[in-house]
Simulated scan of single mutants.
Amino acid sequence: MEPLFLNPLFMYRIWGGTALKDKFNYEIPSNNTGECWAISSHENGDCTISNGKYKGMTLSQLWNTHREVFGNAPGDKFPLLTKILDANDNLSVQVHPNDEYANVNENGELGKTECWYIIDCDDDAEMIFGHNATSREQLSQMIANNEWSDLLRRVKVKKGDFFYVPSGTIHALCKGTLVLETQQNSDTTYRVYDYDRVDDNGNKRELHVNKSIAVTTVPHIENNNTYNTASTDSFNRTTFVSNEFFSVHKLEVFGKCNFRHDKPFSLYSVLDGNGTLTTSTSSFELTKGDNFIIPSDLDEFTLDGNMEIIYSHI
């Protein structure tokens, strides 16, 4: 079996820019392109396979008709979604529901736990992560009174940082950040605050204050940012998070290294550098911006080159 390469999809966002073209040489549709849906089977953005015998099929079609490719993993939906986000301006302050709330209130949608790897950012970049309310009543009151500077927690970010963003976390990327996002396969976002900005037609974007208050974790829970790194002469592998939703790792390749693959499937994104991926029957050139899936029956493969890769699996 070969790796499955994906054709990415691009989304206009009011806060987007041109970094996806400038940094990855992607062909973007506008100068306000905020999101690259790099590996996605969601109905709002379903990537197609670009190589091999499944070329031309969407990822959702492949999941539904050839589940053996994914190790017969359970579930009605492909569980993960990989994006690259260009925050050329501040994103809305937002929060995502968990599986139970989304299933009831969003027509069976999955919840949205996600995580961010900072690919690049401005020197003074920051993000909103968490809040200072001690009760849901206080949260509701501070939102109603527009006490954003007192309510929202801001943290500095730098290139190479990682943030785990469980459902229920108030958060927002801020201007000047380029991020790889690994998330549950969901497109449900509740906006708490959007800086009172308007679109090209003078309209403010919809807010979802009541739902936001209902799903926000109160009080905010800080994450334990302890990572494990394994090193050899040809690669470093850092495990950022491993839980019921996904495991996410950074792979820094600086030579030739052999890997055994024992997961139902794994999602790979090349963030920098170039090299090759070799199986028992084929070899594939890899370059910055490539996104692919290692299927269940690709038990062994070799990476060779100088690359920075983020990969994930269930």
Score class of each variant (00 low, 15 high):
residue 150 D to W: 01
residue 159 K to Q: 07
residue 162 F to K: 02
residue 179 V to D: 01
residue 152 L to I: 11
residue 139 L to R: 10
residue 179 V to A: 03
residue 138 Q to S: 15
residue 169 T to D: 01
residue 167 S to I: 03
residue 141 Q to L: 13
residue 177 T to P: 00
residue 162 F to E: 01
residue 136 R to P: 07
residue 158 K to M: 12
residue 135 S to L: 13
residue 134 T to S: 11
residue 171 H to T: 07
residue 159 K to F: 03
residue 167 S to M: 00
residue 146 N to K: 15
residue 132 N to V: 00
residue 179 V to Q: 05
residue 143 I to S: 13
residue 151 L to E: 08
residue 141 Q to E: 15
residue 188 T to A: 14
residue 159 K to W: 02
residue 173 L to I: 02
residue 152 L to T: 05
residue 189 T to Y: 02
residue 163 F to S: 11
residue 149 S to D: 14
residue 163 F to V: 01
residue 132 N to F: 06
residue 155 V to M: 11
residue 174 C to A: 08
residue 186 S to Q: 09
residue 181 E to R: 01
residue 178 L to S: 06
residue 148 W to G: 06
residue 183 Q to F: 01
residue 140 S to C: 10
residue 161 D to Y: 09
residue 161 D to S: 10
residue 163 F to E: 04
residue 178 L to I: 11
residue 138 Q to P: 08
residue 153 R to V: 08
residue 189 T to W: 09
residue 144 A to E: 15
residue 167 S to T: 03
residue 135 S to F: 13
residue 132 N to G: 12
residue 139 L to A: 12
residue 154 R to H: 14
residue 136 R to E: 13
residue 133 A to I: 14
residue 160 G to K: 00
residue 186 S to C: 11
residue 156 K to S: 14
residue 134 T to G: 14
residue 156 K to R: 15
residue 135 S to R: 05
residue 185 N to G: 07
residue 163 F to H: 14
residue 148 W to D: 10
residue 160 G to P: 02
residue 172 A to W: 10
residue 188 T to Y: 10
residue 160 G to E: 05
residue 147 E to K: 11
residue 179 V to S: 03
residue 131 H to C: 06
residue 137 E to K: 15
residue 157 V to H: 04
residue 168 G to V: 06
residue 173 L to D: 00
residue 167 S to Q: 07
residue 149 S to I: 08
residue 183 Q to P: 11
residue 141 Q to I: 04
residue 159 K to Y: 00
residue 137 E to F: 14
residue 179 V to N: 02
residue 164 Y to C: 00
residue 157 V to F: 06
residue 146 N to Q: 14
residue 155 V to P: 05
residue 142 M to G: 08
residue 158 K to I: 12
residue 172 A to D: 05
residue 185 N to I: 07
residue 162 F to Y: 03
residue 171 H to Y: 02
residue 170 I to H: 01
residue 163 F to C: 06
residue 182 T to Q: 13
residue 156 K to D: 12
residue 178 L to N: 10
residue 150 D to S: 09
residue 179 V to I: 15
residue 175 K to P: 03
